[in-house]
Design a binder for these strands. Structure first.
Lengths: 116, 116
DNA sequence: GGGTTATATAACGTATTGGTTATGTATTCC
DNA sequence: GGAATACATAACCAATACGTTATATAACCC
């Protein structure tokens, strides 16, 4: 996953309306009208949010007559989660290194310490 | 964690410069100057990015003379990961329900199906 | 064909973002 | 005290984000 893809995913997730749309899609495919109904927002506004989500690969669109059913996809979320997990792991490893270094120092200087 | 906190976290993560700053902090505390060095960007630009990260709680600032050491924090990331995990889990549960429904239909109508 | 429904697109306004340069404010060092 | 260093803040600019209303496009229904 390229940085730009990660950008797109996090940008898409950074808006509460878009996260709410995703949450509603968890219970299955929805049309644009169905998605728009619960929000105090115009239909074009929802269409724009859907475009952002689609650009991130978080949703895909089908075709059923005049309807364009929206369906959630997990792929980009897994990539984003993976970035975050890797990062947290690296951070925690770094904390552990620092901790053991501090322990060593507290145990008193050893022959390895630069005395002079 | 409130939606606004999630907003702040995802917004902070949505910029590649900010993710790169976090990645560099994984190897330990850094001053603003140290952080700015590898980027083709002015020091004030980095300070702004740091403010966004700080607002999300992804970094905290210390004080050491004229230096303001920056240190990464994992807390908001865990909350964000948790939102994503919950969502993916809900999605996959929904897929499983749909799958088993399709299987049932494929197995042929039962006495429970609305025949008329 | 003509009206209604579902959705997309265009044009627009305003706020925010991400960068810049210039300057302010502490703090350190001699 | 005065110069240099580390950082923050202000003022500015271009681009983008997020909403609006109005309108276009396409499919459905009679």
């Amino acid at each position: 996953m390229s940085p730009a893809d990660l950008d797109a995913t996090f940008i898409a997730l950074a808006d509460p309306t878009r996260r709410a749309i995703l949450a509603r899609l968890a219970s299955g495919e929805q049309t644009v009208m169905e998605l728009a109904a619960p929000f105090a927002m115009s239909q074009p506004a929802i269409s724009k949010h859907l475009k952002v989500l689609e650009h991130a690969g978080l949703v895909t669109r089908g075709r059923d007559g005049q309807k364009r059913p929206v369906r959630a996809q997990t792929e980009p979320l897994k990539a984003a989660t993976s970035w975050m997990d890797d990062y947290v792991r690296a951070l925690e490893a770094s904390y552990r290194r620092l901790d053991s270094l501090l322990e060593e120092l507290q145990a008193g200087p050893t022959s390895n310490d630069p005395i002079n």
